[in-house]
Every structure is written in structure tokens, then in C-alpha cells.
Design a binder for these strands. Structure first.
Length: 548
RNA sequence: GGUCCGUUGGAGAAGUGGUUUAACUCACAUGCCUUUCACGCAUGCAUGCACGGGUUCGAAUCCCGUACGGGCUACCA
């Protein structure tokens, strides 16, 4: 068989040979120990937390080692392409401050190893595929999808492994004449690798995260170039990561199963193997109580965009992911609360081996703690960024009077307290919690009948003086309490609860609800100072009207 | 079905043969502080490391088997 002739027949008009590409993409000039990693999403939908998890690991290893982190778009599946997905991906990474050194859309230049869209690399893949054909390591296959399904069905019936391999690979030994004839009939074909492996042979492969794993040789004649001339993931991976000089292929563990294919491909192509690091996938518990991989389709609430819309602080989300990524990060962070996460020494071998559950509680805890360390200015900036991108129509309401907002935030963040409050989790939740300063809505119910509430409020208003300080103000609340059968001192109430209708706490609650609409708020006197005398009196009188 | 990976409390996990009465963080519970909330503090929370065997003076840690969970098994990535 004249393989060279076959190759020329299949790929008649390619501009260059393989050597051209090796020369075009030389070894990178980087310091010793520098690693090159990439994130290679496919534009099939919106990215979620799991993608960010991997991207953070990539980014840390690359930048920590003085290497390169680049973005490659794996758009080889035209059927699943979603318009606008690439922009969404880039914008999400940007929001979470994951920065690339080169790659798709990188400014001002994409980089020297492009193009970074796989679709645009068609010619490159075909050049290497042609070489494999010319060496007898790959061949054209004319089998239709229908035929393949039929083969699979037969294999299942007689309990043999499914797939295109060995004796089942009917196109393996087509003669040059047959190929020529079928090409002339314009029959569609794919290029398959001619596997020489034997699944009985096992060996140990070292993964940077998983450690030593058992792999069997591949024996499948996997498709490397599809009918449309575009490569499959496997082939594109081998070519791209070699030409782009990737040193560590960090990807999800769903790729562990196809590692044998990749190993054989690299060997066929004569490429040096990169190191591999297979990360565990993020899981969630679904309604039925089973642990499951996060999925783009089933878990829209885990899309990165969702966190952005709710206004989670990007850095807090990264802190959370870091705790999942490296077990010792959290302890380091507790010891060095003021150090940026980039100062932490991240390592692949400290990554977990089993699928971690996404834990919203933990994210919230980390967010609270992080936000409780922001300065007033930083908090204002954060809210400004959020409001201007997600709530533009409310921008004026919050920012036309920044003094007012500052007072509110000072109280809400507990800036004057010995220990800061931790009420704030994410931007939309913050806005909700400060809404009482902008609108008067009654969210909670009184703990007593309307008659009592009216009496207490009326008496309180009679003595209320805006100029009272906190303790003078509270003394008046105590007086109202005592006059109505409520204990003025908590200690008295606790020792003899049966002697009273309630305590000063209950009276405070009535006033609190009248003024703020809520049972639980930060210090009430301060809230009233911020609202101003007129507003406070208005709110109480409105409440009294509603009691009638 | 085949194959690979995994299995320590409600969650993330440390621990790879002997100061482990299994660290730390989150959640949860109780109490203290407190006019509510939040903060803070204190205490509690695995009788045992999926299960069953084995090796050993000694095992969460080594070996074998089983179960369970997850991935892959496409001209998807």
C-alpha cells in the first residue's frame, strides 16, 4: 500500500508540512521551572463554578512558577456552539479577575502560538493527520453513523466491547483503488488512527494530582478528523498542547477515561508527553439526595453569571474555591488574613482526590468574613460596581447622597464596634438589608395586640427627643416599659418573668418594627439618628394609622 | 456490561503502621454577653475512619474480597 499516495489523495491542497509548524511555534523562552497551562473551554454554554475552580488552579500554577497561562477556545463541535458564549466566558473570567497572558481575545495581541480558536487551526490539524496517513498510522473511514450504530448493536448482543477496533474496523484495510472510487463518488469520510494497542496490557501512569494510576492500552481506532475536516478533542489536544508548548495539562477527571487514547496519539505523532493533572469535579446533591457532578444544563444556579448577578464579591468566591483546591489554604488564610491569596504557595499534590460538594454555607461564611474586613471606601466601591452594572435605575437612589449611604454602611458594617458585624454576604443581599433606610415596609408582625402597640408607641412618641443620646433615649424606652407592666431591666425580668407582661426588649421590638418594619436590625437608636427626626415621626404615625 | 477513579462526622478535610482520647474550618445545638439582630466567648457534636476478612505486639493507615458513589465507554468536549 502506498500510504503517501493515499495521504495526497485525502489532503491534496495543504500549504505547509509539519516542520513548518514546529519552526513557527518554537520552544518558549521561559525561566527554569516555569509552567505553561491553559484553560480550554468549549463555547457550548455558560461556564460555571467548576470551570472557575479549574481556571484558578491553572492560573496559580502558571503564574506562581513564572510561566504562561493562556485561553484556547475549543470550538470543534459546531452543533453545540452557542452564540455569544465566548464573550460570556471572557467576561466572567474578567469579573473574577482570572487573567490570561495570551490567547483568544487577549489584548493587545493574542500571542505567538495562535490562532487560539481551534476552528481556525484546521489546516494545522490536517497537516499532521496527513502525515499520520502517509505513515500508515491513520486511515480514512467511510462508515456512516447508521453503520456504526449497527456494529455497536451487534457487539452488545455477543457481549464484546463496543467501538471501532480490530476486526470490526472494516475500513482499516481498504485498497487505494477503493478509496479512490469512493472519494470520486463524493462519499463522506473521517480519518481514524490505526491503533496498535492491546487492552490486556496495563501500565502505571503518574498523574500530578491522582498519583499513580493504572492505564490500559487503547485499541480503538478513534476518529481524529471528522467529516467536516475538523478534529475531535483528542487530536486537537495532542496537536495544540504540543505546538503551544503546554507543560501541564490540567483538566477535569472526566478525561481520565480517554487518557489511553491520548497516550497512543502522542506516541504515534512522536510528541513528548506533557505532564497531566486531573482535577476532581465539583459535585452537588440533587433533589433525590445523590451526589452528582455539576452540570451546565441541570444546574443553572451554578453558572458563574448567577453569582455575578447576585453580587458575590469575586475575591470571596475565589477564596472559597481556594479552600476547596488546597486543603491547607484555609489555615494559611486564617493565619495571614491580610495577605493576598497569590502569596499562598499553591501545589497540585495538595488537591483533593474525591469530588467535593459545593457548599453554599461555607461560601457565605467566607464572603461575610471577607466583606467584614473591607474598609468603608472599598465597600462603597463594591456596591457602586454592582449597582451600576446590575441595578442601574437605582444608582441615584443610593449614590446621590453618599453621606447618607456612608452612615448606613458604617452602622451595618459595625465600623464603630470593637468587632465588626458580619451581616453582609453579597451585594444584592446588602441592598435588601439597607432597604429599610430607603423604604418603609412592614415585614414583621407585632408581638402584642394592636391596642398595646398603639399605647406603647403613643407614649414613646410623646417623650421622644431626637437630641437624646443613646442612653437617654433608652432610659425613655425603659420608662415606657415600666409604665405599661413591662420590666425595665432585663435582670428583673429574667428572675421573675411571671411578674411582667414582658420586658424592655419586647417594647423595643414594637418601636423597632414601627420604625424599620423589622424585628431584627442593628442598633435602633443609631438607625433613628440616621433616618432623621421627621422621618422617624412620620413612620411611627403611619404605623399608628395602620393600627386603626 | 466493560473500564478507571473514589469512600474519614451534616459539609470541606488533616492524618499513609505506635503521644490520634481522629487536627482544623463551616454547619448545627446549648449557654454566656446583649433592648432585637449581628459580633465575640464557652461547651457539645465520628464508640470509630463504607463493610467483611487477613497481615502485625499494634491499622483509618498494608493486603484480599464485597458494597456503594462518580467518570468514561460518540464524527461531545
Amino acid at each position: 500500500m502506498d500510504y503517501q499516495k493515499l495521504a495526497d489523495m485525502l489532503f491534496p491542497k495543504l500549504k505547509h508540512d509539519c516542520q513548518y509548524y514546529f519552526d513557527k511555534y518554537p520552544k518558549r523562552d521561559l525561566p527554569k521551572g516555569a509552567e505553561v497551562l491553559r484553560i480550554a473551554p468549549s463555547p457550548t454554554g455558560f461556564i460555571h463554578l467548576g470551570n472557575l475552580y479549574g481556571a484558578l488552579a491553572d492560573e496559580r500554577i502558571a503564574h506562581q512558577s513564572g510561566g504562561v497561562f493562556y485561553l484556547r477556545i475549543e470550538d470543534t463541535d459546531s452543533k453545540r456552539k452557542v452564540p455569544g458564549a465566548v464573550e460570556a466566558i471572557i467576561s466572567s473570567f474578567d469579573y473574577f479577575q482570572i487573567y490570561f497572558d495570551e490567547g483568544a481575545h487577549h489584548q493587545p495581541h493574542e500571542g505567538n502560538y495562535g490562532p487560539y480558536y481551534q476552528k481556525q487551526r484546521k489546516e494545522i490539524y490536517q497537516t499532521f493527520a496527513k502525515r499520520l496517513v502517509s505513515e500508515g498510522k491513520a486511515y480514512p473511514c467511510f462508515c456512516s453513523g447508521k453503520q456504526l450504530t449497527e456494529i455497536r448493536k451487534q457487539q452488545k448482543e455477543i457481549n464484546e466491547a463496543t467501538g471501532y477496533y480490530g476486526k470490526w474496523a472494516s475500513c482499516r484495510n481498504l485498497t487505494l483503488e477503493e478509496v479512490k472510487a469512493r472519494l470520486e463518488k463524493k462519499e463522506k469520510f473521517v480519518i481514524r488512527m490505526r491503533s496498535t494497542g492491546n487492552v490486556e496490557n496495563q501500565s502505571i501512569f503518574h498523574d500530578e494530582i491522582k498519583g499513580d494510576i493504572t492505564v490500559r492500552e487503547n485499541n480503538q481506532d478513534v476518529v481524529i478528523i471528522k467529516t467536516d475536516g475538523i478534529p475531535t478533542y483528542h487530536f486537537a489536544h495532542a496537536i495544540d498542547d504540543t505546538l503551544m508548548q503546554t507543560t501541564i495539562v490540567l483538566r477535569g477527571e472526566e478525561w481520565l477515561g480517554t487518557l489511553p487514547v491520548h497516550l497512543e496519539l502522542f506516541e504515534m505523532l512522536g510528541f513528548k508527553l506533557p505532564r497531566y493533572a486531573h482535577t476532581t469535579v465539583l459535585m452537588k446533591i440533587d433533589e433525590t439526595g445523590t451526589k452528582r457532578k455539576l452540570s451546565k444544563r441541570k444546574d443553572p444556579e451554578l453558572a458563574l453569571d448567577y453569582y455575578r448577578q447576585l453580587g458575590y464579591h469575586p475575591y470571596a468566591v475565589k477564596l472559597y474555591l481556594m479552600t476547596l483546591l488546597n486543603w491547607n489554604f484555609e489555615q494559611w488564610h486564617l493565619k495571614n488574613p491580610d495577605s493576598h491569596l497569590e502569596e499562598f504557595k499553591f501545589s497540585l499534590d495538595k488537591m483533593g482526590q474525591s469530588g467535593a460538594l459545593f457548599d453554599l454555607d461555607k461560601l457565605h461564611n467566607i464572603s461575610k468574613t471577607y466583606l467584614s474586613r473591607l474598609s468603608l471606601e472599598e465597600m462603597k466601591e463594591f456596591l457602586k460596581m454592582y449597582v451600576s452594572s446590575q441595578r442601574e435605575e437605582q444608582y441615584d437612589m443610593y449614590f446621590k447622597d453618599e453621606d447618607y449611604l456612608e452612615k448606613i454602611l458604617t452602622l451595618g458594617m459595625g465600623l464603630k464596634l470593637r468587632k465588626r458585624r458580619k451581616d453582609y454576604i453579597y451585594a444584592s443581599q446588602i441592598l435588601k438589608s439597607i432597604d429599610l433606610f430607603y423604604h418603609h415596609n412592614k415585614d414583621d408582625e407585632f408581638n402584642c395586640d394592636n391596642e398595646t402597640a398603639r399605647t406603647l408607641l403613643t407614649q414613646f412618641v410623646e417623650t421622644y427627643d431626637y437630641n437624646d443620646d443613646n442612653s437617654a433615649w433608652f432610659d425613655k424606652v425603659k420608662t415606657v416599659s415600666a409604665n405599661n407592666g413591662y420590666a425595665a431591666e432585663m435582670k428583673d425580668y429574667k428572675t421573675n418573668p411571671e411578674k411582667y407582661k414582658g420586658s424592655v426588649a419586647d417594647v423595643s421590638e414594637v418601636i423597632r418594627i414601627a420604625v424599620t418594619g423589622r424585628k431584627n436590625t442593628p442598633d435602633l437608636w443609631t438607625i433613628m439618628q440616621i433616618l432623621g427626626k421627621e422621618e422617624v415621626l412620620n413612620r411611627i404615625s403611619n404605623t399608628l394609622k395602620e393600627l386603626d
